[in-house]
Design a protein around this nucleic acid. Structure first.
Length: 414
DNA sequence: CGGACATCGCATCCAG
DNA sequence: CTGGATGCGG
DNA sequence: GTCCG
């Protein structure tokens, strides 16, 4: 019943170990081309994750014949930005958090946006009215800003700080698997008032795991440990089939010193987009991820499975303990398997940061494209009709097609 | 005034 | 049992 | 909550 547990370790996948198995013969009608030619690019895999390239100056890059009208300038984001309005943004952060806890994701997001522009403001705000000129700051937040300037805080925030229910819900949501809905239900209907109360309540598999590792999941992962995981995962996968392509994305790829979890992206040249709506039950990939997961289990790296499907795994891992040393901490790990023709958009997306993604997506839209985790396509602004995905065989392709100068992952760490 | 604010895989719940 | 809706996470 | 059509 727990389908998310390592099962058959005797998976056929005969083609896996026979490189020249069969050339997929896809009529490729409507969807995407699946030229395996891109395999060439695979040799250049190893992402510059650990590289410390601090390139800065504009790189010489012949502008390809781009059909773009204007070259949108890069938004200058100075890393040494000082927040002259921390008092204000701190209070707004509280409001954002509260809205999120209540389930008002849009309000929470709206506050976040206002916080970003206020944080970037180059001098102390002196009035709410002044703040309202900033993007994302409307009448409501301007009023709050005014109040914060005058009183140093917000009455609403003060009240929420005393709100027993809100505080408890906020606490419960720190358990992985408990969101706004479940937290409210636990509090309102099941009388839960503390984390330990949850032990005697019905929990989903995910929530049980969240409880089990409540403390460990909140600890950051040092970069050195991330390096070890990268080596381990590449090793295990190469052992299965050396054509696997592996990228540890997320903040690790952006060069951060610590990470919240381990985000693994995977592809394999045999796994292409099913070229048609006609089933094409080339079950090739259906067992691929499961094979990977069972292998990681066999090696003892995985300790719990939260979910496992054909293309996405979410679970828990831990480095092997060495005697007479402190035990290692359990970490959240996600592993996703992408068709090779969607791999680089996926890597690009997962590398982030979120803010960088939003910026590049809006840039794409301005130029008549739509960029997603899966593809870069042309998109007619009026009809909204989208074209077929452009062929992307590297991250550079995405930058080039959008007419944007290449940025190493470290430079996307907004 | 009212909709968008990204989208989707997986687990679980719910209705038929 | 099955198909669809919902919650959650990233 | 803010923006936008």
């Amino acid at each position: 019943m727990p389908s998310a547990t390592s099962k058959q370790s005797t998976l056929p996948a005969s083609w896996l170990l026979s490189p020249r198995k069969e050339q997929r013969t896809c009529p490729s009608p409507g969807r995407q081309q699946t030229s395996l030619k891109s395999t060439a690019a695979l040799s250049t895999v190893s992402p510059p994750s650990a590289v410390k390239s601090v390139r800065k100056g504009p790189k010489k890059d012949a502008k390809a014949p781009t059909p773009h009208k204007k070259h949108t300038p890069l938004i200058p984001i100075d890393p040494s930005k000082k927040n002259y309005n921390k008092r204000i943004t701190d209070v707004l952060s509280e409001l954002s958090k509260t809205e999120k806890n209540i389930g008002n994701q849009w309000k929470a997001q709206a506050y976040s946006k206002a916080i970003l522009s206020i944080s970037a403001y180059p001098k102390p705000l002196v009035s709410g009215k002044e703040a309202q000129d900033l993007p994302g700051v409307g009448g409501s937040i301007a009023k709050l800003v005014q109040e914060i300037i005058e009183t140093g805080t917000s009455e609403r925030v003060q009240n929420e700080a005393k709100d027993e229910r809100l505080q408890t819900i906020s606490m419960l949501m720190r358990v992985s698997g408990i969101g706004p809905s479940a937290a409210a239900k636990f509090y309102d209907e099941l009388g839960v008032r503390s984390i330990s109360d949850l032990l005697h309540r019905p929990l989903t598999r995910h929530q049980k795991i969240g409880m089990k590792y409540f403390n460990e999941f909140e600890k950051r992962i040092p970069r050195a440990e991330m390096d070890r995981w990268q080596a381990i995962i590449k090793d295990v996968l190469e052992d299965i089939d050396d054509r696997f392509v592996v990228t540890i994305a997320g903040s690790y790829r952006r060069g951060q010193d610590t990470c919240g979890d381990i985000d693994v992206l995977l592809t394999h040249p045999e796994f292409t987009t099913s070229s048609s709506s006609d089933e094409t039950p080339n079950s090739n990939h259906s067992v691929l991820l499961q094979l990977v997961i069972s292998r990681l289990h066999e090696k003892g790296y995985l300790t719990d499975d939260i979910s496992l499907g054909d293309v996405k795994y979410m679970g828990v891992c831990k480095l092997p303990d060495v005697p007479n040393t402190e035990a290692h901490i359990h970490r959240r790990i996600d592993i996703r398997l992408s068709p090779i023709d969607m791999y680089w958009p996926a890597v690009f997306h997962s590398t982030g940061s979120d803010q960088f993604n939003r910026w590049i997506r809006s840039l794409a839209a301005e130029q008549g494209y739509t960029l997603s985790e899966y593809s870069l396509r042309t998109k007619d602004k009026k009809s909204g009709a989208v074209g077929t995905p452009l062929r992307i065989s590297s991250e550079e392709d995405i930058f080039r097609l959008l007419g944007v100068e290449w940025r190493a992952p470290e430079q996307r760490d907004w």
